[in-house]
Write a protein that binds this DNA or RNA. Sequence first.
DNA 1: CGCCGATTGTTCAAACTTGAACTTTATAGG
DNA 2: CCTATAAAGTTCAAGTTTGAACAATCGGCG
Lengths: 177, 177
Amino acid sequence: MVRKERARRAGSIETGVWLRLLSCTNIILRHLRRNLKDAFALTMPRFDLLAQVARPPLGPSLGELSRKLLVTKGNITDIVARLEAVELIERRRDDADGRIQYVFLTSSGRKLLDEILPVHDKWLKDLMQELSRDELETLYDALGVLKAALKRMDQRVTEPELALEGEEGEAGMRVSR
Amino acid sequence: MVRKERARRAGSIETGVWLRLLSCTNIILRHLRRNLKDAFALTMPRFDLLAQVARPPLGPSLGELSRKLLVTKGNITDIVARLEAVELIERRRDDADGRIQYVFLTSSGRKLLDEILPVHDKWLKDLMQELSRDELETLYDALGVLKAALKRMDQRVTEPELALEGEEGEAGMRVSR
DNA sequence: CGCCGATTGTTCAAACTTGAACTTTATAGG
DNA sequence: CCTATAAAGTTCAAGTTTGAACAATCGGCG
């Protein structure tokens, strides 16, 4: 049922996909940020972290949060400290391994998040209300395919021990990490 | 050819779409940022602004850049100043309207961008190399539908004079601007 | 002309983010 | 036990970003 547009496009289709991805993400981000601030006095990174802490597995470590949220460890340290300061989360050190700290919601953190999640869901529904069920599913599936492919490429690039060594290192694909 | 998954999903499909959108964007952003830095000593916002200046219409104003890039005016002021300081762009005041400044690439800005664009395109192709032509087109079209819908919702919310007034203003959909 | 409201861009504090260097702790191998 | 290496968090400077207040300019209208 979906007719493919054959419109003129600047650059490759991959670039086209990327530009649209970025636009959509930024538009939604702007709305959610404004809504979170107005309704709950929360910033997006704080909400993201809270929501991630609430998701299983229970009590993620700072490093796990860093990987799940796709931000650096230094960033996590900062956000966790701020959320801890307002008592929405708390940390517990690992009994066996002194390096590790796990993060948990406090009761007020839990309460706040339980308020936010349904509203957050409604905001997204409102934003996408013009899309049909079918369009949403197509989009969901297509993004699933992309995400899976990206994750594989991501590993290939950030896990040196498999490839590397023989590569020429052509402009740009160098990665330190 | 695309079978719809009926997988368990946390929350609504809209939220599912949003989470995948965000993941994909962040993974790609991370790669591009690293590559831009390694290969061209450029940050993402600076590249974004350069690329937007290069796109027609020629010589966009700061306000136009702010709208196109979906960031605030204050941000544009900052990035433009930094790019101007390293002489990749330059400004010209409007002859008739003293408030407006147009931005142009300098010759070295043009040269740099001409180097980057093909490589940037290749980075994206590499990242998405596992996707078939068909998957890419499906994704491109689906994102087009979403983007169009979001833009309409965006206007509805940021242009007060049309709707507003009678609305209940239920938790969160308040928008100040 | 002179005022009012709208538009364009600037400024600034607070927050977020990265990337790299660093500290602390754990683990594996001599 | 000792040492090297790795892993988990922290720190910090530089940059980005927002949002709000502000200054400057323009346009219309009396």
